[in-house]
Design a protein around this nucleic acid. Structure first.
Lengths: 339, 339
DNA sequence: TTGTATGCGTTATCAA
DNA sequence: TTGATAACGCATACAA
């Protein structure tokens, strides 16, 4: 009848219970479980067995109180759809190692007061650090310099240059896209992109232009088509491009959404992709890119890597001190069938 | 020179500091800050002022140690893209009230051992409860009955009927879609959907069939087109539907992805939407539905509401006790221009 | 090698 | 109305 351990009602089993079961003091139990050297092998084994029997799991809150470290970080986002935050979170999660550090995900929904609330709550929970992911890849307000924990801005840089920001190399991404097109023999390349008030749109265009310039080439139609980040704009702009420069042989779209619009119009005009016109997008948003007809080549921002980097920098900053500045993460090409 | 408070270096300001600054004992400071009645108004004001000056924020870990409640919950997901988890998280977040309860988001990436790890970590952090979001809307393995905290399964029900599961009313969603089509005079309705091994696909189809039956109608072509959850399948299946039943006047797609494929083929065949054929999707995945040509009518699963409900049930279960079973959350129609 | 005592930051129970 | 003091669960310096 002793064969049914307290397994099923394992609420609140503490080190005290383990110690009692093992017949040692709390201190000894603690040392045994934490691999401290000053404990006899046989004793340690006994303690460990007891802990397992009770399926003991140490109370991290109590540990945190002592070590002054909660083993948690906050991920403060404003990115509604989680489209950028999620890959960043996943990268961070695996850099931290899931059982070392856990992350609180808070969505401020673009609301400054909600952000303040979340910030207070996180600080109150004694997070060891913060990762801030903005809604768009442009500078956002700093959380301030007087926070008790290190803060890393990811995706959207902080407006304060003394903060550490990790951002996508959009210029490089633009180069990458155009370089790929050029290598495949395209010469009449157009660029349709989103809102011109976005730094990312400017940067991607700049990268494209630079690479084109190196080849002695200019943009087909000699302009960048700024508009909005939507399929509808991609459709409309493509129509204009075709009218203005019917000999266009490639279109670099500033986002996968736009690229979908581009494809749509190209199909309507019976222009073969990539036979007649190659198309390349930006973001590698799988649901859009992989399912396109044909599957869309695109530029991936390596957001997971960005998340990993954020975790590493944060980790380093937690004991050391944080150096401000802007670090850049390179993009990579994902070639499918549209180019 | 006293005008510069310790604001900038506010690391580790404790109740002790506040008490000292206010000239009272720690106990009194605590009572004052927690609105306990037995404290003089003037004293309370003094304490509060001191707390503000030091921008004191109580250490939640310490509070949790005493109250036996961490004020945190874990959201354990397997939903890679966060497509379902995020709305659920947002709903839960706002039901909890951001400064009362914070949520740990953990992605198990469909890996059972990773899930175990996360679970251990979460338990060790003494979360007050768990919300589990599966990867697909079918039953998933239970976490077990012997956990020290209440668990709610959202989106994917638990295989154990004694657990509490909150799921989408897929049958109702199917009815809703077809009902809408019928009300707008459609009679020759086809249904193209995803993998037939998905309960959700079966349920949506069943709802559609039921509603059709009530009207004395049958499915155009007298079959449900099961396949995969992709645009490509939507395209291919539409082609078959058109061949088999050229007089089809509406297509109910089992997901927005499929619906996008349907639209694509319809355009290729020069069939006007919704003039000739109406189309309705499922999921209300904004990026796909809102940007479609024409914008796609679709069924929304009210995932945020599901998240809110999960939070409420969890909250209730934290002090009370949890009743098992399956609760269902209704869908709603989002009418755009494709129907 | 083991155990006792102290403290982490709070709250709660008493006396004063 | 206020202030010692004892928890909460754990880790550690120190004593045995």
């Amino acid at each position: 009848m002793e064969s049914e351990p307290a397994q099923s009602a394992n609420r609140a089993v503490t080190l005290r219970d383990v110690a009692k079961l093992a017949g040692v003091s709390i201190a000894t139990a603690s040392k045994a479980l934490n691999n401290q050297p000053q404990v006899r092998a046989e004793t340690r084994a006994r303690v460990i067995r007891a802990a397992e029997q009770l399926s003991f799991s140490p109370n991290t809150l109590a540990q945190g109180l002592i070590t002054q470290r909660s083993g948690t970080v906050g991920l403060l986002t404003s990115d509604l759809e989680g489209r950028f935050s999620i890959p960043i979170l996943m990268g961070a999660e695996d850099a931290f190692g899931s059982d070392q550090t856990s992350v609180f995900l808070c969505d401020a929904r673009g609301d400054a007061v909600r952000e303040k609330h979340h910030l207070r709550a996180l600080l109150s929970r004694r997070v060891d650090g913060l990762i801030v992911v903005g809604a768009r890849p442009d500078a956002r307000a700093s959380l301030g310099r007087d926070l008790p924990v290190p803060v890393i801005y990811a995706y959207s840089p902080s407006a304060d240059p003394d903060d550490l920001s990790l951002v996508t190399d959009n210029v490089g991404g633009g180069r990458l896209a155009v370089d790929h097109l050029i290598r495949h023999g395209r010469r009449r390349i157009a660029h349709i992109t989103g809102d011109e008030t976005y730094g990312a749109a400017q940067d991607r265009a700049r990268g494209a232009l630079e690479r084109l310039g190196e080849e002695g080439l200019a943009l087909a139609g000699e302009q960048v088509w700024f508009g909005s980040w939507s399929e509808a704009w991609g459709r409309g702009a493509t129509r204009m491009v075709l009218q203005r420069t019917p000999d266009v042989d490639a279109i670099f779209a500033g986002s996968d959404e736009i690229a979908r619009g581009v494809l749509d119009t190209l199909h309507q005009e019976n222009l073969d992709v990539p036979g007649k016109v190659a198309v390349i997008g930006f973001d590698n948003w799988n649901i859009l890119a992989a399912n396109a007809r044909p599957p869309l080549s695109t530029v991936d921002m390596n957001l997971e890597q960005l998340g990993r980097l954020a975790a590493q920098r944060l980790f380093a900053a937690i004991d050391g001190t944080l150096e401000g500045g802007v670090e850049t993460v390179g993009c990579r090409l994902v070639i499918r069938e549209s180019s």
